[in-house]
Write a protein that binds this DNA or RNA. Structure first.
Length: 479
DNA sequence: TTTTGAGTTGTTCGA
DNA sequence: GTCGAACAACTCAAA
């Protein structure tokens, strides 16, 4: 065994932060020289290759992290390749005596990491930590010893056992390994789009990295938490935390979020119920990861296999119209264009757009899942899969099949002043509120005054809501 | 083992 | 405009 002062590698994955990072804190406590390592791994079999929008975020996040690490006297080593091979190489190069990471719960990662631990712990000290969850999946079981399949009882027992977690100490100074280690230039990974640079419109929306995450959390707690229960549903209002991409990349931990929320409630007890509402969303993230861990095929297969017989439609044209925000339903189109322009979609808009794809167009939820995977900056295997299956009705604790969102009613209810549609579907901006969410109901004079020609400046609805609803009810009842 | 109550986010219809 | 019921049964979790 190498000596106890041999360097320790901290392998960062979805934990791109220095604060409350248990693997990093353990290394700092061990006094070993630190080799901080990020690997771009596009080669592990069974992994979902990171999508385009996520790659943009990853670049920005790593760029921020490189600077944060340098400020504290360390260095971040960047390499790409297959994990087992690259880790073995790095261990040899720096003479590492230890390898630490924070656990991932995605099926391919569990498999990969288990094999690595088995192999490498024969040579060096290998340890993994919990840096991503309040409750690791194997720690929450029902009375019968089975994993929960319903959110409410799952979250109830979580709350009863307490959400607060001690935070790992944040290192002021990193005792970086003194030797020379090769690191890729971040730019050489070509994570940023060029020609066209479709992510240009992402820039003003986001500040990837730990500092940006902290700022978002602080702003949310200070300005938005009190109104969260109602404002979260308003499409045109900034009423949500928008922490999802920060959480996905681990720029902030759920434990830090709980600490900030509880501190706010301590100072202002009236925030309790709003805080619980928000924390239950953190609970959904926990629950999705729990489902993925216990049912590893969640991203690929219907959780309820009765759905395997469902006759999904294969036509390309409606799918294409959906992806481009050209369905003729303003709120759906606004949602899809928001996604394209910002790498993000409002939570309620996600439900409306997903319901439309599945229940109005009768297109397989996996096609929507794949599109979101590529276009969301917060694309997360567990959340994405669990949420699509929830909407489809094929998932655990899912929405009943007869719950079919009416895109007009949803628009009128959650975008009553039309701010959301006018922002993302500007060709309809001059329509009055009364017909904004259903332009086909406007009379000719109104359309003309607003400069709208259906079928020309904006599409006719690609399906009729009432007919599509009827068809979906029949198709799903057939299961 | 059996029973009981409950289950994120909705829509439509008819009174 | 508002309200309650129907939509459909099934599965889950705990007593």
């Amino acid at each position: 065994m190498p000596e106890s002062n041999a360097p320790a590698i901290v392998w960062l994955r979805q934990d791109l932060r220095l604060a409350d990072n248990p693997a990093l804190a353990a290394t700092v406590a061990s006094k070993r020289p630190l080799v901080l390592f990020y690997l771009l791994d596009d080669d592990t079999p069974g992994a979902w290759r990171m999508g385009g929008a996520s790659r943009w975020w990853l670049h920005r996040s790593l760029d921020a992290l490189v600077r944060d690490v340098a400020k504290r006297g360390g260095a971040l080593i960047l390499r790409r390749g297959e994990a087992a091979k690259e880790l073995s190489r790095l261990i040899k190069e720096c003479g590492a005596g230890a390898l630490y990471w924070n656990r991932s719960y995605e099926p391919y990662a569990v498999k990969r990491d288990t094999a690595l631990k088995d192999k490498l712990s024969k040579q060096i000290d290998v340890q993994s930590f919990n840096g991503a969850l309040l409750f690791e999946p194997w720690t929450v079981k029902s009375k019968t010893g089975e994993p929960y399949k319903v959110f409410t009882p799952f979250w109830r027992v979580c709350q009863q056992s307490g959400l607060a977690r001690p935070l790992a100490s944040s290192p002021r100074k990193l005792n970086g390994f003194a030797g020379d280690l090769r690191s890729d230039a971040l730019a050489s990974w070509k994570l940023l789009p060029t020609n066209p640079n479709w992510a240009q419109s992402f820039e003003p929306e986001w500040t990837p990295g730990e500092a940006g995450a902290k700022q978002s959390l602080g702003d949310f707690v200070d300005d938005l938490l009190g109104d969260y229960p109602t404002a979260r549903d308003q499409l045109g209002v900034k009423g949500t935390s928008r922490l999802s991409p920060h959480l996905h990349f681990g720029e902030i931990s759920p434990a830090q979020i709980v600490a900030a929320i509880e501190s706010a409630v301590y100072h202002k007890p009236a925030l309790r119920s709003a805080a619980d509402k928000f924390l239950s969303e953190i609970g959904w993230r926990e629950f999705s990861t729990h489902l993925l861990f216990h049912w590893p095929t969640l991203p690929e297969a219907n959780w309820r296999d009765t759905f395997d017989a469902f006759p999904w439609r294969k036509d390309e044209a409606p799918f294409k119209a959906w992806t481009r925000g050209q369905t003729g339903y303003p709120v759906v189109d606004a949602a899809m264009r928001e996604l394209w322009a910002t790498g993000y979609m409002h939570n309620r808009a996600r439900m409306i757009a997903a319901s439309f794809l599945i229940k109005h167009l009768l297109i397989d939820w996996r096609r929507g899942e794949a599109w979101f995977w590529d276009t969301l900056v917060d694309a997360d295997l567990a959340n994405n899969a669990a949420s699509w299956q929830w909407v489809a009705g094929s998932g655990a604790d899912a929405s009943p099949y007869f719950r079919i969102f009416n895109p007009v009613a949803q628009g009128q209810r959650y975008d009553a002043d039309g701010a959301y549609v006018r922002r993302w579907v500007p060709e309809l901006a001059r329509l009055p509120n009364k017909v904004l969410h259903a332009p086909w109901e406007a009379d000719d004079a109104t359309l003309k005054a607003a400069g709208v020609t259906l079928g020309k400046t904006y599409p006719h609805p690609i399906v009729d809501h009432a007919a599509a609803r009827k068809q979906a009810l029949e198709a799903f009842a057939g299961l």
